[in-house]
Design a protein around this nucleic acid. Structure first.
Length: 324
DNA sequence: TTTGCTGT
Protein backbone atom coordinates (compact mmCIF):
# COMPACT_ATOMS: atom_id res chain seq x y z
CA UNK A 1 0.00 0.00 0.00
CA UNK A 2 1.37 3.38 -0.96
CA UNK A 3 1.93 6.21 1.47
CA UNK A 4 -0.75 8.20 -0.28
CA UNK A 5 -3.42 5.54 0.07
CA UNK A 6 -2.49 5.04 3.72
CA UNK A 7 -3.02 8.73 4.40
CA UNK A 8 -6.34 8.51 2.60
CA UNK A 9 -7.45 5.69 4.83
CA UNK A 10 -6.56 7.78 7.85
CA UNK A 11 -8.66 10.60 6.45
CA UNK A 12 -11.52 8.17 6.16
CA UNK A 13 -11.36 8.15 9.95
CA UNK A 14 -9.68 4.79 10.40
CA UNK A 15 -12.74 2.85 9.37
CA UNK A 16 -12.87 -0.50 7.72
CA UNK A 17 -13.05 0.80 4.19
CA UNK A 18 -9.65 -0.80 3.75
CA UNK A 19 -11.31 -4.17 3.80
CA UNK A 20 -13.18 -3.20 0.66
CA UNK A 21 -9.89 -2.28 -0.98
CA UNK A 22 -8.42 -5.69 -0.21
CA UNK A 23 -8.67 -8.47 -2.73
CA UNK A 24 -8.20 -8.24 -6.44
CA UNK A 25 -11.08 -6.78 -8.35
CA UNK A 26 -10.91 -8.34 -11.76
CA UNK A 27 -14.43 -7.81 -13.03
CA UNK A 28 -14.74 -5.35 -15.84
CA UNK A 29 -17.80 -3.55 -17.04
CA UNK A 30 -19.30 -4.22 -20.41
CA UNK A 31 -21.95 -2.28 -22.17
CA UNK A 32 -25.38 -3.67 -21.43
CA UNK A 33 -26.01 -6.30 -24.04
CA UNK A 34 -29.60 -5.33 -24.53
CA UNK A 35 -30.84 -2.28 -26.33
CA UNK A 36 -34.43 -2.45 -25.16
CA UNK A 37 -35.73 0.02 -22.63
CA UNK A 38 -37.13 -2.78 -20.47
CA UNK A 39 -33.91 -3.10 -18.55
CA UNK A 40 -35.71 -4.72 -15.64
CA UNK A 41 -36.57 -7.72 -17.77
CA UNK A 42 -33.00 -8.99 -17.62
CA UNK A 43 -30.60 -9.46 -14.76
CA UNK A 44 -26.99 -9.56 -15.85
CA UNK A 45 -23.79 -9.95 -13.92
CA UNK A 46 -20.98 -7.52 -14.57
CA UNK A 47 -19.65 -9.63 -17.43
CA UNK A 48 -22.97 -9.49 -19.19
CA UNK A 49 -24.01 -13.06 -18.41
CA UNK A 50 -27.71 -13.49 -18.02
CA UNK A 51 -28.49 -14.52 -14.45
CA UNK A 52 -32.25 -14.64 -14.69
CA UNK A 53 -35.32 -12.62 -15.39
CA UNK A 54 -37.54 -10.35 -13.36
CA UNK A 55 -41.17 -9.59 -13.93
CA UNK A 56 -42.02 -6.00 -14.72
CA UNK A 57 -43.87 -4.66 -11.70
CA UNK A 58 -46.49 -1.94 -11.97
CA UNK A 59 -45.36 -0.71 -8.54
CA UNK A 60 -42.04 0.47 -9.91
CA UNK A 61 -42.79 4.09 -10.77
CA UNK A 62 -39.97 4.54 -13.25
CA UNK A 63 -40.18 1.41 -15.31
CA UNK A 64 -43.94 1.55 -15.42
CA UNK A 65 -43.72 4.78 -17.36
CA UNK A 66 -40.38 4.70 -19.16
CA UNK A 67 -41.15 1.53 -21.04
CA UNK A 68 -41.55 1.93 -24.75
CA UNK A 69 -44.21 -0.74 -24.54
CA UNK A 70 -46.54 1.49 -22.52
CA UNK A 71 -48.08 4.06 -24.83
CA UNK A 72 -49.09 7.28 -23.11
CA UNK A 73 -52.63 8.57 -23.68
CA UNK A 74 -52.65 11.69 -25.85
CA UNK A 75 -54.53 13.88 -23.37
CA UNK A 76 -51.81 13.61 -20.72
CA UNK A 77 -48.95 13.50 -23.14
CA UNK A 78 -47.08 16.76 -22.68
CA UNK A 79 -46.28 16.80 -18.93
CA UNK A 80 -45.75 13.06 -18.72
CA UNK A 81 -43.58 12.86 -21.80
CA UNK A 82 -41.38 15.75 -20.71
CA UNK A 83 -40.99 14.21 -17.25
CA UNK A 84 -40.27 10.76 -18.65
CA UNK A 85 -37.69 12.07 -21.06
CA UNK A 86 -36.01 14.05 -18.27
CA UNK A 87 -35.85 10.93 -16.09
CA UNK A 88 -34.45 9.02 -19.04
CA UNK A 89 -31.77 11.66 -19.40
CA UNK A 90 -30.90 11.72 -15.67
CA UNK A 91 -30.68 7.92 -15.54
CA UNK A 92 -28.96 7.57 -18.94
CA UNK A 93 -26.15 5.40 -17.56
CA UNK A 94 -28.23 3.07 -15.41
CA UNK A 95 -29.84 2.71 -12.00
CA UNK A 96 -27.46 1.96 -9.09
CA UNK A 97 -30.25 -0.07 -7.42
CA UNK A 98 -34.03 -0.39 -7.57
CA UNK A 99 -35.22 -0.08 -3.96
CA UNK A 100 -38.15 2.37 -3.57
CA UNK A 101 -37.31 4.51 -6.57
CA UNK A 102 -38.93 7.95 -6.70
CA UNK A 103 -38.64 10.48 -9.48
CA UNK A 104 -38.99 14.20 -8.98
CA UNK A 105 -38.93 16.81 -11.74
CA UNK A 106 -35.15 17.22 -11.78
CA UNK A 107 -33.66 14.33 -9.81
CA UNK A 108 -34.26 10.66 -9.01
CA UNK A 109 -33.96 9.00 -5.61
CA UNK A 110 -33.93 5.50 -4.08
CA UNK A 111 -35.19 5.40 -0.49
CA UNK A 112 -34.05 3.08 2.29
CA UNK A 113 -37.07 2.55 4.56
CA UNK A 114 -34.96 0.88 7.25
CA UNK A 115 -32.60 3.83 7.79
CA UNK A 116 -35.05 6.59 6.72
CA UNK A 117 -32.27 7.91 4.50
CA UNK A 118 -31.96 7.52 0.72
CA UNK A 119 -29.67 4.87 -0.78
CA UNK A 120 -28.77 7.20 -3.63
CA UNK A 121 -29.91 10.29 -5.49
CA UNK A 122 -29.12 10.89 -9.15
CA UNK A 123 -28.75 14.24 -10.90
CA UNK A 124 -27.91 15.41 -14.42
CA UNK A 125 -26.18 18.79 -14.37
CA UNK A 126 -25.59 21.25 -17.16
CA UNK A 127 -24.32 24.84 -17.15
CA UNK A 128 -27.81 26.14 -18.00
CA UNK A 129 -29.50 23.88 -15.47
CA UNK A 130 -27.44 25.00 -12.48
CA UNK A 131 -27.70 28.69 -13.39
CA UNK A 132 -30.09 30.55 -11.09
CA UNK A 133 -33.23 31.85 -12.77
CA UNK A 134 -34.74 35.17 -11.78
CA UNK A 135 -36.72 34.88 -8.56
CA UNK A 136 -35.67 31.34 -7.66
CA UNK A 137 -34.64 31.37 -4.01
CA UNK A 138 -33.98 28.55 -1.58
CA UNK A 139 -35.28 30.77 1.22
CA UNK A 140 -38.75 30.27 -0.31
CA UNK A 141 -38.48 26.51 0.13
CA UNK A 142 -39.45 24.58 3.28
CA UNK A 143 -38.11 21.29 4.59
CA UNK A 144 -41.10 18.97 4.35
CA UNK A 145 -41.85 15.30 5.02
CA UNK A 146 -42.34 13.20 1.89
CA UNK A 147 -45.93 12.00 2.09
CA UNK A 148 -45.28 9.38 -0.56
CA UNK A 149 -43.42 7.40 2.11
CA UNK A 150 -45.47 5.26 4.57
CA UNK A 151 -45.59 6.98 8.01
CA UNK A 152 -43.68 4.06 9.59
CA UNK A 153 -40.67 4.86 7.44
CA UNK A 154 -41.00 8.63 6.97
CA UNK A 155 -38.56 11.06 8.59
CA UNK A 156 -39.93 14.27 10.09
CA UNK A 157 -38.51 17.69 10.91
CA UNK A 158 -38.95 16.84 14.60
CA UNK A 159 -36.49 13.94 14.18
CA UNK A 160 -33.75 16.42 13.28
CA UNK A 161 -34.74 19.18 15.69
CA UNK A 162 -32.31 19.47 18.58
CA UNK A 163 -30.29 16.50 17.29
CA UNK A 164 -27.22 18.60 16.62
CA UNK A 165 -27.22 17.45 12.99
CA UNK A 166 -28.08 19.45 9.88
CA UNK A 167 -30.75 18.32 7.45
CA UNK A 168 -28.16 17.95 4.73
CA UNK A 169 -29.29 17.82 1.10
CA UNK A 170 -28.16 14.81 -0.95
CA UNK A 171 -29.29 16.39 -4.23
CA UNK A 172 -28.04 19.93 -3.52
CA UNK A 173 -30.54 22.78 -3.72
CA UNK A 174 -27.88 24.80 -5.54
CA UNK A 175 -28.02 22.32 -8.42
CA UNK A 176 -31.73 23.01 -9.07
CA UNK A 177 -32.21 26.76 -9.43
CA UNK A 178 -33.73 26.93 -12.90
CA UNK A 179 -37.26 26.63 -11.47
CA UNK A 180 -38.60 27.28 -7.96
CA UNK A 181 -40.49 23.97 -8.13
CA UNK A 182 -37.25 22.08 -8.75
CA UNK A 183 -35.61 23.81 -5.79
CA UNK A 184 -38.66 23.12 -3.60
CA UNK A 185 -38.53 19.41 -4.45
CA UNK A 186 -34.98 19.10 -3.13
CA UNK A 187 -36.37 20.02 0.32
CA UNK A 188 -38.31 16.77 0.77
CA UNK A 189 -36.91 15.00 3.82
CA UNK A 190 -36.39 11.92 1.63
CA UNK A 191 -33.53 13.96 0.11
CA UNK A 192 -32.02 14.76 3.55
CA UNK A 193 -29.52 12.98 5.75
CA UNK A 194 -28.24 13.90 9.21
CA UNK A 195 -24.95 15.67 8.56
CA UNK A 196 -22.45 17.30 10.87
CA UNK A 197 -23.02 21.02 10.21
CA UNK A 198 -19.93 23.10 10.91
CA UNK A 199 -16.84 21.58 9.33
CA UNK A 200 -18.80 19.21 7.08
CA UNK A 201 -22.15 20.12 5.48
CA UNK A 202 -21.45 23.84 5.61
CA UNK A 203 -17.80 23.43 4.68
CA UNK A 204 -15.96 20.53 2.97
CA UNK A 205 -19.10 18.77 1.72
CA UNK A 206 -20.40 22.11 0.42
CA UNK A 207 -17.04 22.62 -1.31
CA UNK A 208 -17.45 19.27 -3.03
CA UNK A 209 -20.96 20.25 -4.19
CA UNK A 210 -19.65 23.54 -5.56
CA UNK A 211 -16.79 21.72 -7.29
CA UNK A 212 -19.25 19.36 -9.01
CA UNK A 213 -21.40 22.32 -10.15
CA UNK A 214 -18.29 23.99 -11.52
CA UNK A 215 -17.54 20.93 -13.64
CA UNK A 216 -20.43 22.03 -15.89
CA UNK A 217 -18.25 24.91 -17.08
CA UNK A 218 -15.83 22.42 -18.66
CA UNK A 219 -18.12 19.49 -19.44
CA UNK A 220 -21.45 19.80 -21.30
CA UNK A 221 -23.04 17.00 -19.24
CA UNK A 222 -22.30 15.96 -15.66
CA UNK A 223 -24.02 13.00 -13.99
CA UNK A 224 -23.83 12.89 -10.20
CA UNK A 225 -24.82 10.11 -7.80
CA UNK A 226 -24.78 10.88 -4.05
CA UNK A 227 -25.55 8.80 -0.99
CA UNK A 228 -24.72 7.65 2.54
CA UNK A 229 -22.38 4.91 3.73
CA UNK A 230 -22.39 2.95 6.98
CA UNK A 231 -18.86 1.67 7.16
CA UNK A 232 -17.49 -0.96 9.52
CA UNK A 233 -14.94 0.10 12.10
CA UNK A 234 -12.61 -1.92 14.27
CA UNK A 235 -13.60 -1.78 17.95
CA UNK A 236 -11.69 -2.56 21.14
CA UNK A 237 -12.12 -6.34 20.81
CA UNK A 238 -10.40 -6.23 17.43
CA UNK A 239 -13.58 -7.13 15.54
CA UNK A 240 -15.32 -5.05 12.90
CA UNK A 241 -18.71 -3.51 13.63
CA UNK A 242 -21.03 -1.17 11.78
CA UNK A 243 -22.10 1.38 14.37
CA UNK A 244 -24.15 4.49 13.74
CA UNK A 245 -26.27 6.88 15.77
CA UNK A 246 -30.01 7.23 15.18
CA UNK A 247 -31.98 10.41 15.87
CA UNK A 248 -35.57 11.35 16.66
CA UNK A 249 -38.69 9.30 17.29
CA UNK A 250 -38.26 7.69 13.87
CA UNK A 251 -34.67 6.56 14.50
CA UNK A 252 -33.26 8.30 11.43
CA UNK A 253 -29.79 6.83 10.78
CA UNK A 254 -26.74 9.08 10.94
CA UNK A 255 -24.44 7.85 8.14
CA UNK A 256 -20.77 7.42 8.99
CA UNK A 257 -19.75 8.68 5.53
CA UNK A 258 -21.13 10.14 2.31
CA UNK A 259 -20.10 9.38 -1.25
CA UNK A 260 -20.33 11.08 -4.61
CA UNK A 261 -19.68 9.34 -7.92
CA UNK A 262 -19.56 11.73 -10.87
CA UNK A 263 -19.36 11.06 -14.62
CA UNK A 264 -18.49 13.86 -16.99
CA UNK A 265 -19.09 13.83 -20.76
CA UNK A 266 -16.41 15.76 -22.62
CA UNK A 267 -17.13 17.89 -25.69
CA UNK A 268 -15.50 15.18 -27.83
CA UNK A 269 -17.71 12.46 -26.30
CA UNK A 270 -15.24 10.89 -23.96
CA UNK A 271 -16.25 9.94 -20.43
CA UNK A 272 -14.43 10.66 -17.19
CA UNK A 273 -15.31 9.47 -13.68
CA UNK A 274 -14.50 10.78 -10.22
CA UNK A 275 -15.47 9.15 -6.90
CA UNK A 276 -15.28 10.60 -3.39
CA UNK A 277 -15.91 9.39 0.17
CA UNK A 278 -15.98 11.90 3.03
CA UNK A 279 -16.45 11.05 6.71
CA UNK A 280 -19.51 12.65 8.36
CA UNK A 281 -17.41 14.72 10.73
CA UNK A 282 -15.58 18.02 11.01
CA UNK A 283 -12.94 18.09 8.28
CA UNK A 284 -9.93 20.40 8.24
CA UNK A 285 -10.52 23.14 5.67
CA UNK A 286 -6.96 22.75 4.39
CA UNK A 287 -7.50 19.14 3.26
CA UNK A 288 -7.80 19.08 -0.54
CA UNK A 289 -10.79 17.26 -2.04
CA UNK A 290 -8.47 14.98 -4.00
CA UNK A 291 -7.49 13.37 -0.69
CA UNK A 292 -11.00 11.91 -0.54
CA UNK A 293 -10.91 10.28 -3.96
CA UNK A 294 -11.32 6.50 -3.89
CA UNK A 295 -11.69 3.81 -6.57
CA UNK A 296 -15.39 3.69 -7.56
CA UNK A 297 -15.41 -0.05 -6.86
CA UNK A 298 -14.70 0.70 -3.21
CA UNK A 299 -17.97 2.60 -2.91
CA UNK A 300 -19.90 0.00 -4.89
CA UNK A 301 -18.81 -2.79 -2.53
CA UNK A 302 -19.53 -0.70 0.57
CA UNK A 303 -22.92 0.58 -0.63
CA UNK A 304 -24.19 -2.55 -2.37
CA UNK A 305 -24.79 -0.55 -5.54
CA UNK A 306 -23.42 -0.51 -9.08
CA UNK A 307 -22.83 2.96 -10.47
CA UNK A 308 -23.07 3.80 -14.17
CA UNK A 309 -23.22 0.15 -15.10
CA UNK A 310 -24.25 0.94 -18.67
CA UNK A 311 -20.80 2.41 -19.17
CA UNK A 312 -18.15 -0.07 -20.20
CA UNK A 313 -15.03 0.53 -18.15
CA UNK A 314 -13.11 0.74 -21.44
CA UNK A 315 -15.19 3.80 -22.37
CA UNK A 316 -13.77 5.78 -19.45
CA UNK A 317 -10.75 7.82 -20.45
CA UNK A 318 -10.01 8.97 -16.89
CA UNK A 319 -10.81 7.85 -13.34
CA UNK A 320 -10.05 10.31 -10.56
CA UNK A 321 -8.04 12.42 -12.97
CA UNK A 322 -5.80 9.55 -14.06
CA UNK A 323 -5.81 8.11 -17.56
CA UNK A 324 -7.04 4.54 -17.72
C1' DT B 1 -21.25 31.50 -2.47
C1' DT B 2 -23.90 28.13 -0.30
C1' DT B 3 -24.79 25.62 3.63
C1' DG B 4 -28.83 25.36 7.47
C1' DC B 5 -29.40 26.15 12.71
C1' DT B 6 -31.33 28.73 16.76
C1' DG B 7 -34.27 31.93 19.09
C1' DT B 8 -37.92 35.24 19.03
Amino acid sequence: MTTKSVSRLLLLSSVGIGSYLAGSYVERRKTADTVCLRRDDYVNDRSGNLLGTLQSKPGLPIFGTVSAASPIPAEQKSPVVSNVSRIGQIMKYGFPGLDNVRSYDDYVLSYDRRTRVAHWVFEHLTADGVKASQGVDRAKSDFKPDESVHPFFRSLNTDYKGSGFDRGHLAAAGNHRSEQKHCDQTFFLTNMAPQVGVGFNRDKWNHLERYVRKLTKDYPNVYCCTGPLYLPRKEADGKLYVRYQVIGANNVAVPTHFYKVVVMETRDNRLEMEAYVLPNQKIDDETPLTMFQVPPETIERAAGLLFFDKIARSQLSKINGKKV
